[in-house]
Amino acid sequence: MIGLVELYSFIDYIQLEKNYSNLTIQEYRKDIEHFLHFLDGESVTNLNEVEYVHARLYVTALYEKKLARTSISRKISSIRSFYKFLHREFDIREDAFRSLYHPKKEERLPHFFYEEEMEKLFQGNEGDDPLSLRNMAILELLYATGIRVSELISIELSHIDKSYGVVRVMGKGRKERYVPIGDFALSAVEEYVEKSRPKLMKSTSHSFLFVNNRGAHLTARGVHYILNEMMKKASMHTTIFPHMLRHTFATHLLNNGADLRSVQELLGHSHLTSTQVYTHVTKEHLRKTYMNAHPRA
């Protein structure tokens, strides 16, 4: 396959100089390798030979595979970044993808829970055994802070500041931020740390806040499993994934009067456009409320 040397150089660059997360690096590698395999099929033997026609053929092939527009857009962005790097480091032409338009994004509103649903989820999972206390702390913290699951599992004991009521979070691109924790979440975390975590730790020793039932560092897959079990325990049949609690956090803040800039900072979004999707959710919420409540709606 052509371009492997250049690909490895690019991976080193985004890992060592850009400090991208392992997940982001894997996505870049997968996207670029897919493109390089396509070039092999087109009998392209040199990255400098790639022209606009190859870029168009590649995107057409992606559409024929019925990939989502968001996936196609991500692949285009990955390859553009790769070619910018090639142009700077190896003097390879980058114009093939420069004039290629991203596909128009599908309008998808984020899924979230209503306040009544969250209350049912909390009430259905009360308990004083070690796993129930841990699970409640996870649920409370995700809902109270809107952090990503990758940020949640990276929290260490020292990252919780009880005196100021904040948690230190390492976000995308290794950007650090402090997020406030509400009283409910802080109490749940404190109770878990005092009564549950020591029992779950057993003979293991590490500083990560959340652990599994063997005392090992909790994984993202583990969090997903825990949340699904909590849904079953609360007799709720809606599908749940950790990001829904992030969506719920943002939506409830905006519904209750928070300004968009504050929500952007709390979520750790680099651009306001990433946060603005939640304004569509709140508008839809208002529309449904009006339709249900107004006598002549």
Rank of each mutant, 00 (worst) to 15 (best):
M1W: 04
I2M: 14
G3Q: 07
L4R: 14
F10D: 05
D12T: 10
I14Y: 04
L16S: 12
S21R: 12
S21N: 08
L23H: 15
R29Y: 06
K30P: 00
H34A: 11
F35M: 04
L39G: 05
N46K: 09
N48I: 02
H54N: 14
R56S: 06
Y58G: 07
A61W: 04
T70D: 01
S77V: 02
R80H: 11
S81C: 09
S81P: 00
K84Q: 13
L86V: 05
Y101P: 00
H102L: 15
E106H: 06
L109I: 07
F113M: 14
E117F: 01
L121C: 08
E126H: 12
L133W: 08
R134A: 01
E140Y: 11
R148H: 04
S150F: 06
E151A: 05
L157Q: 09
H159C: 03
I160W: 10
Y164F: 11
V166I: 15
G171D: 03
K172L: 06
R174F: 06
R174Q: 13
G182W: 11
F184R: 15
E190Q: 13
E191W: 00
E191G: 00
E191P: 00
Y192H: 02
V193K: 14
K199A: 10
K199M: 13
K202Q: 11
T204M: 09
L209A: 02
L209S: 02
N212T: 02
N213C: 02
G215Y: 10
A216K: 15
R221N: 06
M231D: 01
M231R: 03
M231C: 01
K232W: 03
M236H: 04
T238E: 13
P242G: 08
R246P: 00
R246W: 01
A250G: 06
H252S: 09
N255D: 11
N256L: 06
G257K: 08
G257P: 01
L260K: 07
R261T: 00
S262L: 04
V263E: 06
L266W: 12
T273G: 10
T279N: 08
H280L: 07
V281T: 10
T282F: 07
T282V: 15
K283N: 13
E284V: 01
E284W: 04
E284H: 11
N292Q: 15
